[in-house]
Amino acid sequence: MRLLTHNMLSSNIKGVTNGFPLRIEIEKVVEKQVDFNADFLRNMFPKIEWKALVGAAHTLGYVELPEEVEPSRLDSEDFLRKFHHALLELHLEEGALVCPETGRRFPVSKGIPNMLLHEDEV
């Protein structure tokens, strides 16, 4: 699971009002190379919850992202490279996403988060 995915997901258990961002529990992290595409990054940037991305990257041990960011930074190749790495190249291969409100664990195995709810959660 890339951090882009993490940035899009929340816990959608019935009654949960604040299911984002999901806490990350790590068992195994891998890095996978992805082709760099500046246009894609610029398109995605306004849709990203920056704080959540920085937090998730920290959890995975990547601390190069600035805490606050101005859209003007998108002109900097150096910044885009870091953004690219954090957003697309860090993978949570094994672990879990944990709902911040209820503590429910959504397991991540073989890089695939299982977001399906139990019967009493829908």
Partner: peptide, 9 residues
């Protein structure tokens, strides 16, 4: 590879 695959409803 796909950017993301997930199990969801």
């Amino acid at each position: 590879m796909p950017i993301a695959l997930l199990r969801a409803d």
